[in-house]
Amino acid sequence: MNSFERYLGILQGQRVDFLPRLPILMQFAAEYIGSNYGEFASDYHALVEANARCAEDFGMDQLSAISDPFRETQGFGAEIVYVKDGVPRCPHPPLEASKELATLVRPNPLQSERMLDRVKAIQSFKERFDGQYSILGWIEGPTAEATDLRSMSNFFVDLIEDKPFAAKLMDLCVEVGVEFAKAQIDAGADTIGIGDAAASQVSPRVYQKLILPRQKRLIQAVKDLGAFVRLHICGNITHLLPGIAELNIDILDVDHSVDMAAVRQALGKKVVLAGNIDPVSGVLRGTPATIRETMVKTYHTVGNPYMITAGCEIPSGTPVDNLKALCEPIPCRP
């Protein structure tokens, strides 16, 4: 059973040889091949090579095109500044001082520089590893992209003081997200990751009324295009679980601040849970023995269906033996 068969088997409710491993690697992966975060985020060749090497050396089951949250943002017309050893930055969100949506450039995934770079990464994965590994594309969720365009503080004020504008902006983000997802699926992605970290910071009422309907629309559109959906919301999402249970997702990444038993109770057995060891205290500062113990304990708590990953990105500086321990095969139980 190869990596793709293992991954697909879990999603289809089958028993496989052992649990799929899909840690999120960005700066770690870049440095592992002697590159840096700036190159990883700006040149798909570096991203592809870093993911391929890590998959082979650590036993990962998914190749990922995630790099940073500003792919679509650049497509909307924003300036993106690359940082050698850090996440790219957007110094001036295009709607920071304006609510005029008409001033935004309409992104084209096959022409916008950074969106096309991600599409090319997917194409390269497909050409080199078709049928061997799962291929993960990535888009920003409606809350995350709206904050990238408007700034976090401005958009959160909008959610309170100008709900019609906030809704209209997120609607635009959903439209672009669907188009970007389609381009990546057409290029060979079998799964689309949706990052919507900012959603963890809103109240259940705001989430239910303004954000959940747009997440539903985005997720269903991706599913209709034939891909699986992996939802990633950093932070404590306990208060959002009743709404998340309504989403038609296949995989939910769970951060370390959330009780995995509560997530399983809320979502039942229809969603694959992934996580949720602390990336810093558990992986970066842990030991191979404690990492193995934590993952086995977590699997015992949530049962099937489950996949192995940390609560978020594996940090730069993580000892190689620690990541190897995270990716050690854990047999899939009946």
Results as ranks from 00 to 15, higher is better:
141 G>Y: 06
143 T>S: 14
143 T>W: 00
143 T>K: 01
144 A>G: 13
145 E>D: 11
145 E>A: 02
147 T>F: 08
147 T>R: 04
149 L>Q: 03
149 L>I: 14
149 L>E: 03
149 L>T: 08
150 R>S: 08
152 M>V: 09
152 M>T: 12
153 S>C: 03
154 N>R: 05
154 N>A: 02
155 F>D: 01
155 F>A: 00
155 F>S: 01
155 F>K: 00
155 F>Y: 15
156 F>G: 01
157 V>Y: 12
157 V>Q: 11
158 D>L: 01
160 I>D: 11
163 K>N: 02
164 P>T: 06
165 F>P: 02
165 F>L: 04
167 A>L: 11
167 A>I: 05
167 A>N: 14
168 K>D: 15
168 K>G: 01
170 M>L: 05
170 M>A: 10
170 M>H: 05
170 M>V: 08
171 D>M: 02
171 D>K: 09
171 D>Y: 01
172 L>N: 10
173 C>L: 09
174 V>F: 09
175 E>Y: 00
178 V>M: 11
178 V>I: 15
179 E>I: 00
180 F>N: 15
181 A>I: 01
181 A>P: 04
181 A>Q: 02
182 K>N: 07
182 K>P: 01
183 A>W: 00
183 A>K: 06
184 Q>K: 08
185 I>S: 05
185 I>K: 05
186 D>C: 05
187 A>W: 01
187 A>E: 04
188 G>D: 10
188 G>Y: 09
188 G>P: 08
190 D>K: 02
191 T>K: 10
192 I>L: 15
194 I>R: 04
196 D>T: 06
196 D>H: 08
196 D>N: 13
197 A>D: 13
198 A>V: 00
199 A>W: 03
200 S>P: 10
202 V>Y: 05
202 V>R: 01
203 S>N: 12
204 P>W: 06
204 P>I: 05
205 R>I: 13
206 V>W: 04
206 V>I: 14
207 Y>M: 04
207 Y>Q: 03
207 Y>K: 07
207 Y>N: 06
208 Q>I: 00
209 K>D: 15
209 K>I: 03
210 L>P: 02
211 I>Y: 07
211 I>M: 10
212 L>C: 10
214 R>A: 04
216 K>G: 05
219 I>M: 08
219 I>P: 03
220 Q>T: 14
221 A>D: 11
221 A>E: 14
221 A>R: 11
223 K>C: 12
223 K>M: 13
223 K>H: 14
224 D>M: 07
224 D>S: 10
226 G>E: 06
226 G>W: 02
226 G>Y: 03
226 G>A: 06
226 G>S: 09
227 A>G: 07
227 A>F: 00
227 A>K: 00
227 A>M: 06
228 F>V: 00
229 V>R: 07
229 V>W: 06
230 R>G: 02
231 L>S: 02
231 L>D: 02
232 H>M: 07
232 H>F: 15
233 I>C: 12
234 C>M: 10
234 C>W: 09
234 C>H: 14
235 G>M: 12
236 N>K: 11
237 I>K: 06
237 I>W: 08
237 I>C: 04
238 T>W: 10
238 T>S: 15
241 L>P: 13
242 P>W: 07
242 P>I: 07
244 I>V: 14
244 I>C: 08
245 A>I: 10
245 A>E: 13
246 E>C: 07
247 L>Y: 12
247 L>F: 12
